[in-house]
Design a binder for these strands. Structure first.
Length: 888
RNA sequence: GGGUCAUUAACUCAGUUGGUUCAGAGUGUCGCCUUGACAGGGCGGAAGUCACUGGUUCGAAUCCAGUAUGACCCACCA
């Protein structure tokens, strides 16, 4: 026994194809080969382009599950497009991610004992670029491990000179169109990164907090009013107390003043219908500098604005003796002071939503400040229309509603950030304050403009001060599909004309507004055309318990370890098997195992084909010939399905079709039928056709499992053919032989039924099969049944055998002549089935005797019902005969 | 508070215009098999009141209304 085993293993080794393979080796080998042959590189030519721009991952990023999902999908699409003969171009790149990267660099410097404040802008940026040059390509290298076939020669970075040039051009252009302006507004302030954030960069989380009731004494009176607040530390910034004008409890206090505790400032009681009478005491403190709604009231009632915070979230001089304390420490201290002075009446627990900075997780502070804004309303119009009229299609469609809602309620975009890592805003101040400025791409242009504007030709370069702020990261990425082809600086260049608009965009719904919507706006604004035709929105990758993957929970698998363990092909399959468009996917590692099993199955099928001994002199085996004819049609049928799935972005359905085609139809049916008896060589004709078929399987498989398919493509034969699978062609559709398909399918069902009876009755010998000559019959392939169901003869009989085991496929009845050991049991079974059929007949006949059905239902449907009726009657008669036989 | 989507087998999900014997797939599970590609395998089986309640219809997993549960989006009341 051991000897045979060892002999087998030796044979394997000699043949060069052991029953296992090294996925990592294969991946490295072929990725290098593809790169060496420049297969991923695209230049404009006479073919139709198929373009995808990658959603640029942050340079700070490492490959997480979301990236893997996303980029696998893009790679599947781009590889298939390449095989379809399109000029496939996948533009890769990274995003400079200003806040995230700056935070990383600040942290790194801090670890070295260096404060950002001690560095000049230039010195800091040098550190930042060093960091980028060292770490920026990590994620791109990881994408290569996954097999992504990006055109790496085109790799872009949102802070590249060419990209920055586009950004500046756009800024100046929008400014000149009157869409960019400076404004003193309430913005979201991240006290940790010490910058503003756009509304989209604020994430709200439900937090348990406290609601404090504080007593304010009315001036020259013993009366008090009670206000409720979640932020008692902001009382230093209070400049009014508001009540509803119709609230009778406070009518007598209109026009009076109250004293703010601790600061002892007198502030007016104002009336405004904004105040909710029902809520709390109906009395509201107003802190115009630290709350959006309070600012609105402050503007309306001409209230004083008192800003009590420093940019880092500590209190400034307005905070009196709490000056320098952090806002949360100050809160505790203020509460303590109020408590000791008896002004604090009540503390209730209270859950409310708190805005957090998406990048730093710091609690966002509403803060009044001078910032740059972009007016969005006009820009949004064509972008909304494009989605509504179908010029741009969203998959899945459900996102259209969300999109519309956002686009019709769009607010101005705060585009300035108080950071250094990013594009510095090209605005130049020439006066003492920030009132007088010009906007220009270069300092020279700015100087010229400033001279004209001031009518002062002696103005010098050093009189200009460039705006310190940089632009929001998204202000460069919203131009991505245009700027990667230099389409803004050089609108007529060949590249942009050829590649734009791109075809598909694959990204997560979380950046639908951040990015997708804005790209649409910039596309229409700067090229009068949509930037892409289809947007495929993937779901979130969750863990098997449905939880979001996050660092805190530690439930996000190490992606590189997964690739290492299962191989990139298997991980891709694992991800894709469970990813329907737009729905979140619950990732379980077992899916990768399933992918690996599939890879192994294919590997071994190839090994079988490869190791067969071939006999040139033998004529083609009839069963094999028959089976090959069937498989070719089956393949065509599935190919059509796969193409259809692709057109609807049902990528996992497409993969499942291929999975079943290869595993079930190819391996379980075709190979089993073609396989000659042990020791007999295969005929050359069959083998050659088999290789053709296997190659076609590999073509279908390639977009999903690029590495393994490429490896087998080169292993399987040395005939002349396309040089590599990656640049070979996707199978083309051809005729389907429906007759063969249906006969084969009937045959397969018969085989399954016979096997089932064999299992039940524990029959392992060869048996004959009988059928009544009077019975209606379907076509089937005897040789196939003989081989796979161990049937040795097919007898047509005039009378039902006395003792037999019947089975039925459709309406065709067949019998295995066996003595029935326990007729009663069989009769009982048959009677049960008889009852079912009779009941079914009643239902069908009831339907058919209903004139409303016959009159209203489409003819085809009625016809089908009539067929059901005749079929069922025939079945009933068969079963009754079988019962009668057994009863004798 | 406003809105969107979902709920189908143990799990993850399909189910297209309401109509095919429509209740499906993959995984898992159970039983049997195993020296000739693959135990990461083969063969066969079991498994669901389509969330619930009504309605429309000749006919509902599918359409409508309501309820429950969950997810997400938007806006936020101190």
């Amino acid at each position: 026994m051991l000897a045979t085993f060892v002999a087998q293993k030796l044979t394997d080794l000699l043949m060069g194809f052991p029953n296992k393979f090294n996925a990592t080796q294969i991946a490295e080998k072929w990725y290098a080969y593809w790169l060496a042959n420049n297969y991923f590189h695209s230049t404009p030519d006479s073919r139709k382009p198929y373009t995808i721009v990658i959603p640029p991952p942050n340079v700070t990023g490492v490959l997480h599950m979301g990236h893997m999902m996303n980029n696998t999908l893009q790679d599947v699409l781009i590889r298939r497009a390449r095989m379809l003969g399109l000029n496939a171009c996948w533009v890769p790149g990274t995003d400079h991610a200003s806040i995230a990267t700056e935070a990383k660099v600040v942290q790194k410097l801090a670890d070295l004992g260096v404060n950002k404040e001690d560095l000049s802008r230039e010195e800091f940026l040098k550190h930042a670029w060093d960091w980028k040059n060292e770490h920026g390509d990590i994620i791109l290298d990881q994408l290569k491990k996954l097999g992504c076939s990006c055109d790496w020669n085109r790799t872009k970075f949102t802070l590249d000179d060419s990209m920055t040039a586009s950004v500046l051009q756009v800024f100046v252009d929008l400014y000149e169109r009157g869409l960019i302006f400076r404004g003193y507004r309430m913005v979201n302030w991240d006290p940790e990164a010490q910058t503003t954030l756009s509304d989209e960069e604020v994430v709200y989380e439900e937090k348990k907090g406290k609601l404090y009731s504080i007593e304010y004494r009315v001036v020259d009176s013993n009366e008090t009013v009670i206000i409720a607040t979640t932020r008692p530390e902001t009382i230093m910034g209070d400049t009014a107390v508001a009540v509803h004008p119709g609230d009778e409890r406070y009518t007598h206090l209109h026009g009076e003043k109250v004293i703010v505790p601790i600061v002892n400032r007198e502030i007016p009681i104002i009336t405004d219908t904004y105040v909710d009478v029902e809520y709390g005491t109906g009395c509201l403190k107003i802190t115009p500098a630290h709350d959006e709604n309070d600012k609105m009231l402050g503007d309306k009632h001409n209230l004083e604005f008192i800003d009590i915070f420093n940019p880092n979230g500590t209190l400034n001089a307005e905070g009196l003796h709490y000056k320098g304390k952090d806002r949360f420490d100050a809160r505790k201290l203020v509460v303590a002071e109020l408590k000791s002075s008896g002004k604090l009446l009540e503390i209730k627990s209270h859950t409310h939503k708190v805005g957090l900075s998406e990048r730093t997780k710091a609690v966002v502070e509403p803060r009044l400040s001078d910032q740059w804004f972009l007016k969005m309303e006009e820009l949004a119009k064509p972008a909304l229309l494009a989605v509504e009229d179908g010029t741009v299609q969203l998959f899945p469609k459900k996102f259209i509603n969300t999109y519309r809602h956002w686009m019709t309620n769009i607010r101005d975009w705060n585009i300035s950030r108080q950071l250094w890592w990013g594009q510095q805003i090209p605005a130049y101040y020439y006066g003492p304050g920030k009132q007088d400025f010009v906007v220009a791409i270069t300092k020279e242009d700015a100087l010229e403009k400033a001279r004209k504007k001031t009518k002062n030709p002696s103005l010098k370069g050093q009189d200009l001060r460039q705006e310190e702020d940089v632009l929001d990261t998204w202000f460069s990425s919203w131009l991505w599909p245009i700027s990667v082809f230099d389409g803004i600086r050089f609108p007529e260049n060949e590249e942009i004309q050829y590649y734009y608009p791109t075809q598909d965009l694959v990204t997560g719904p979380d950046i639908l507004f951040f990015w997708v919507a804005r790209m649409l706006m910039s596309g229409y604004s700067f090229r009068n055309q949509q930037p892409f035709q289809n947007v495929f929105l993937t779901g979130l990758v969750r863990d098997s318990q449905g939880r979001k993957m996050s660092k805190q929970l530690g439930n996000s698998p190490d992606t590189l370890a997964l690739i290492e363990k299962y191989g990139a092909d298997s991980v891709r399959v694992g991800l894709l098997l469970s990813s329907s468009a737009g729905n979140d996917l619950l990732f379980d590692e077992s899916l990768c195992q399933q992918g690996k099993n599939f890879a192994n199955k294919i590997w071994n099928a190839h090994r079988l084909i490869q190791n067969w001994e071939i006999d040139d002199s033998r004529p083609q085996d009839a069963t094999a010939k028959q089976t090959l004819i069937w498989y070719k049609s089956k393949f065509q049928k599935e190919l059509n399905l796969v193409n259809d799935h692709f057109s609807k972005y049902r990528i996992s359905d497409a993969l499942m079709c291929i999975y079943k085609l290869i595993w079930d139809d190819f391996c379980s049916w075709l190979l089993e039928l073609i396989k000659p008896a042990y020791g007999i060589p295969i005929d050359a004709q069959t083998h050659a056709e088999l290789i053709d078929i296997f190659e076609n399987n590999l073509r279908l498989l390639h977009p999903f499992m690029p590495f393994l398919s490429e490896e087998l493509w080169h292993n399987i034969t040395d005939r002349t053919k396309e040089e590599a699978l990656v640049v070979s062609s996707w199978p083309t559709a051809s005729e389907i032989d429906n007759h063969t398909l249906s006969v084969f399918s009937h045959t397969m069902e018969m085989i399954t039924s016979i096997r089932s009876i064999r299992k039940q009755k524990n029959i392992s010998t060869k048996v004959p099969m009988q059928l009544l000559e009077t019975s209606s019959q379907a076509e089937y392939y005897e040789n196939v049944i003989s081989k796979l169901a161990n049937i040795n003869s097919f007898q047509v009989v005039t009378d039902l055998p006395q003792q037999s085991l019947p089975f039925r496929v459709g309406t065709a009845a067949y019998y295995l002549p066996f003595s029935v050991e326990n007729p009663d049991e069989e009769i009982a079974k048959l009677k049960e089935e008889l009852n079912y059929q009779k009941e079914f007949l009643v239902i069908v006949q009831k339907k058919l005797s209903n004139t409303r059905f016959v009159d209203n239902a489409p003819e085809q449907v009625v016809k089908i019902e009539r067929k059901k009726e005749t079929d069922t009657i025939e079945k009933i008669s068969q079963i009754e005969q079988q019962i009668t036989k057994l009863q004798r």
